[in-house]
């Protein structure tokens, strides 16, 4: 068997790459996939914190690359999901500690024992980004419905297309349906028209994501948040399921009544 490498990147910082990585890794692991989340943001690691695994790190990616430990030793097993592992970044080094060739080599080894390798790319288009995309079989671009984020996403897509990396798919993160309705925010259609790539998911703005990040408990672990459900839908689409894109808000009273009577519409 050979696992699939999916790199999560964005160009702009702060759009939700790490959140997306943690939640997709969780959602895939909850679907019986063997998953390793790889933090490629060397020097500014966050993925361990969001996954609540910071205090279990012994070795990291740079230790592996520089031969101070075996790959197996650096993998941190998730405390909730036995099929989920983290390969942490080093915090005390920088992007130059790893080369694209190193990443390809490490991922080729991990492919043997995992179904999915989800790489959290750093922001920017410099070496850290190059490292993160070098081993990718698939790329997911995360953007927010804001012009600056979309412009940076476009730049990154152009760079990936020039290298014939792909398929490239898009997550629109932190969409606020209320603002869209008022005409104060780009709609998902606007973003798709600007970027002209395939959509794999829309994640609504959701305060529970912030709490989740602080407590190291990704929202996808439970089924009671809109964002968590959105990430599960993305995981299902990654696994090849057809999941319809649907309205992005809590169902109103009428809709809930209708659900009671057995008519269930698709969810985000």
């Amino acid at each position: 068997m050979a696992g699939k490498v999916i790199t999560i990147t964005s160009g702009k910082g702060g759009v939700g790459k790490t959140t997306a990585t943690a939640n997709l890794a969780v959602a895939l692991a909850m679907r019986e996939q063997r998953v390793v989340a790889i933090d490629a943001d060397i020097g500014l690691r966050n993925l361990d914190v969001m996954m609540g695994l910071e205090n279990r790190i012994v070795y990291d990616l740079v230790d592996v690359v520089e031969g101070r430990c075996r790959l197996r030793q650096a993998l941190v097993r998730d405390k909730r999901l036995p099929e989920l592992f983290l390969l942490p970044a080093a915090q005390t080094r920088d992007k130059t500690a790893v080369s694209p060739e190193d990443m390809v080599r490490v991922c080729d080894e991990l492919r043997q024992s995992f179904d999915y390798l989800i790489i959290d790319s750093p922001a920017g288009i410099e070496q850290g980004f190059r490292n993160a995309v070098a081993p990718a079989d698939e790329v997911i671009i995360v953007t927010n419905p804001e012009i600056a984020a979309v412009r940076d996403a476009d730049r990154v897509i152009g760079l990936l297309e020039a290298e014939e990396k792909g398929p490239i798919r898009l997550i629109i993160n932190r969409l606020k349906p209320e603002m869209v309705r008022r005409g104060d925010m780009l709609t998902s259609e606007d973003v798709l028209e600007l970027l002209a790539i395939e959509l794999i998911g829309i994640v609504p703005e959701d305060e529970t994501v912030i709490t989740a990040a602080n407590t190291g408990r990704p929202v996808a672990l439970s089924d009671d948040s809109l964002a968590g459900r959105a990430f599960h839908n993305i995981a299902r689409r990654l696994l090849g399921e057809e999941v319809p894109f649907a309205p992005l808000r809590e169902p109103g009273l009428l809709e809930r009544l209708r659900d009671w009577f057995g008519r269930k519409e698709g969810e985000p």
Partner: peptide, 8 residues
Amino acid sequence: RRTLRSGQ
């Protein structure tokens, strides 16, 4: 014969 993206 392709779309030109930001930065190209």
